[in-house]
């Protein structure tokens, strides 16, 4: 009896928390389909009286949201592809090549991780300004071409690959790069997928750096454009909700499709410590 009561209470609590967690997202979705002004009524409406797509239409026609969507996509895909390639090569080298000063170099890199990215923004802006990379895709990409955290994750994973695999490939006459490409990369697939999701989402959701680098409206990413739009359209609740839906949707889809890798990656990162 007591156990059944406990079960009931725990289930109720779990459902209440789930509802509270989902409420803002569901309301965002619902309000994005309301006609203008409908979200600003009292008592608040939970569902649109008549579904309308007009705000999505306005965003993509008058407010050029497709432009920002393309910017966000180009940046997230390039940063993910480039950094995955560079980080995996370096992580492999740190795990499997013996050269003088390797461990010292690796410890030095890991120690650098305490430097918050915000510290580098001011000189990096001046540097990029000097070489004309402000307001370009390259300006955002260069800051994310390789990350110490990514190198670290790949190295930890590659350490578990048996040396005999590499030796066998070398006996067959495979070059260093071929071994990396044909043997190491396939074996590292789980960590590479995890790292790819982290990087893609991190770049997509990033705000401070694109806000600083992209000074021209046409180069904004979705989050920067959205933050800018809220200033001008503070009264257009329904329109802003539609913009928020477009911004969140791509990362949400990726998360739901690949959550196994995402969550196991976080668990691994937490347990290691």
């Amino acid at each position: 009896m007591i156990q059944r009561l406990g079960k009931f209470l725990i289930a109720t609590l779990a459902i209440i928390i789930a509802v509270v967690t989902l409420a803002p997202a569901l309301w965002m979705l619902s309000a994005s389909f309301m006609s203008a002004g409908e979200a600003s009524t009292f008592p608040p409406k939970l569902l649109p009286s008549r579904m309308t797509f007009e705000h999505y239409f306005t965003l993509f026609t008058r407010l050029q949201l497709s432009r920002y969507l393309v910017n966000s996509l180009v940046l997230s895909v390039s940063v993910t592809a480039i950094s995955l390639f560079f980080n995996s090569m370096a992580g492999y080298a740190f795990a499997k090549y013996r050269f003088a000063g390797r461990d010292r170099l690796f410890r030095f890199l890991v120690a650098e991780m305490v430097i918050p990215a915000q510290v580098t923004t001011l000189p990096l802006f001046l540097m990029l300004n000097k070489v004309g990379l402000i307001n370009t895709y390259a300006g955002v990409i260069v800051a994310g071409m390789a990350t110490i955290y990514g190198i670290f994750l790949v190295r930890q994973y590659a350490l578990s690959i048996p040396d005999s695999f590499i030796e066998a490939a070398r006996m067959d006459g495979a070059s260093d790069f071929r071994i990396y490409w044909r043997v190491i990369l396939p074996l590292c697939k789980p960590i590479l997928i995890t790292l790819a999701i982290f990087t893609f989402m991190g770049t997509w959701n990033d705000f401070l750096w694109p806000l600083i680098v992209m000074t021209d409206d046409s180069m904004y990413t979705l989050p920067v454009a959205l933050a800018n739009l809220t200033g001008e359209h503070v009264q257009d609740t329904e329109l802003m909700m539609a913009g928020a839906v477009i911004t969140i949707l791509p990362v949400m889809i990726i998360f739901i499709a690949l959550q196994k890798y995402y969550i196991s990656g976080i668990m691994a990162a937490g347990l290691k410590e």
Partner: peptide
């Protein structure tokens, strides 16, 4: 909520 975009969440 962890994977959502912070700017969009702040707007909502």
């Amino acid at each position: 909520p962890v994977v959502t975009t912070l700017v969009a969440v702040a707007v909502v």
